[in-house]
Write a protein that binds this DNA or RNA. Structure first.
Lengths: 120, 120
DNA sequence: TAACCTAGTTACCTCAAGGTGCCTAATTGA
DNA sequence: TCAATTAGGCACCTTGAGGTAACTAGGTTA
């Protein structure tokens, strides 16, 4: 079996997986990474593609993803402004294990929903 | 490259990965699954092992994990009460892709912290 | 008799995530 | 001249996650 001994009981202060879950476990980060994996994308383009994200939250999440090294932000000195976001190598690489989880989720989605309805 | 086309833009209502992230992306679920992967565990034993989880939240999370089919709850008719929690096959199997993500997190933890400090 | 252990439940509080709406400054097209 | 577009910033509000503390019931122990 896969041995897992990682999680930190002391409040997850320096726990790697908590850092990752705290970042991509929110409502929008994962979706943003996936959209950016298709192509570098401008701010409003991201907003339109995702559709129902608020401007405030998009700004905030992009800042955080940049700060932790998942994406880059490139501003061009034009008018109207032009800012392009893109994945870093790290941002791209996290999509591999995330993809594994997505595969698992797809395979087990029916089972989960079945359970949920059984005990509604 | 790993092609990811899963995320649902319509609010993630029926999106498999959102179901999973919403469940194990909280503060305690993942840790509980990992603890249970070592051995079936009683309620208070879980509480003591984790240490800083509140009773209310432990009860709630256990209920939800059971409802979605990740764990089982077995109550013995004794006094004082005895209730044992254990992983289901599904609960065990999710730890494989999660383990992949944990590996990634460990390998990139230093890099993430470096980025974070660079732009503090 | 009084306190303890079990597995919870309930009321109350706090904080952060996320939403809405309104503002900006330079430039372009009608 | 007026409206639209760009990438945000800011004030305000609601909701849910999670914490604390006190309570329960039956049986065991001191």
């Amino acid at each position: 079996m896969h041995k897992v001994t990682v999680l930190d009981k002391k409040g997850a202060l320096d726990c790697p997986i908590r850092d990752v879950i705290n970042r991509i476990g929110d409502k929008w980060s994962l979706l943003i990474l996936v959209v950016l994996s298709e192509q570098p994308t401008r701010f409003n383009e991201l907003k339109r593609t995702i559709g129902d994200i608020s401007q405030k939250v998009l700004t905030k999440v992009l800042k955080e993803l940049e700060q932790e090294g998942y994406i880059t932000r490139t501003a061009f000195d034009e008018s109207p402004p032009k800012v392009v976001y893109d994945l870093t190598e790290m941002g791209l690489s996290v999509l591999t294990p995330v993809g594994q989880l997505i595969d698992w989720a797809e395979k087990n989605h029916a089972l989960i929903k079945e359970h949920r309805n059984k005990t509604d």
